[in-house]
Computed example of a mutant assay.
Amino acid sequence: MNEQVEVVNHPRFGRAFGEKHFMFKPGFIHLNQGSYGGYPRPVRDALRSVQDAVQAEPDSFVRYTYPAKLDKIRALLAEHLGAANQDEIVLVPNATTALNTVLRNLKYEPGDLIAYVQGTYGAIEKTVDYLVETTPAKSVLVPFDPTMDDDYALVESFRRVLQEHHGRVRVAIFDTIMSMPGLRMPFERLAHICREFGVLSAIDGAHGIGLIDLDIDRLGADFLTTNCHKWLFVPHACAVLYVASKNQHLMRSSLPTSHGFQPLPEILHKRQYMSPYEPPASMNPFVFQFSYTGTIDNGPPLCIPAAIKFRKEVIDFILRSLARDYNTFVNIAFISGALWARLSAQIYLELQDFEYGAEVLKKLCEKVAKREYVH
Rank of each mutant, 00 (worst) to 15 (best):
D297Y: 00
S321L: 12
D297E: 05
R311L: 15
A338P: 06
E278M: 13
W340S: 00
N331M: 10
G260M: 05
P301F: 08
I304P: 14
P263C: 11
Q289H: 04
I315C: 11
T293N: 13
N327D: 13
S258A: 15
L302F: 12
K312P: 00
I335N: 00
F290H: 07
R324A: 11
A341T: 09
M274S: 06
D297A: 01
G294Q: 08
N284W: 02
R271F: 00
P285N: 02
D325F: 01
R320L: 15
V330K: 02
F310W: 10
K270A: 13
Y277E: 09
P301R: 06
L302P: 06
P305I: 04
Y292C: 07
L255V: 12
P265V: 10
D297I: 01
P256E: 09
K312Q: 07
A306F: 08
T328C: 14
P300Q: 04
S258I: 11
M283Y: 01
P280L: 12
I332M: 11
E278L: 10
D325R: 05
R342K: 04
F290V: 01
A307F: 02
V330M: 07
P279Q: 13
P280I: 01
N284C: 09
L322Q: 07
H269R: 15
A281V: 11
S275R: 01
C303Q: 12
S254E: 12
N331H: 06
P305V: 01
R342T: 13
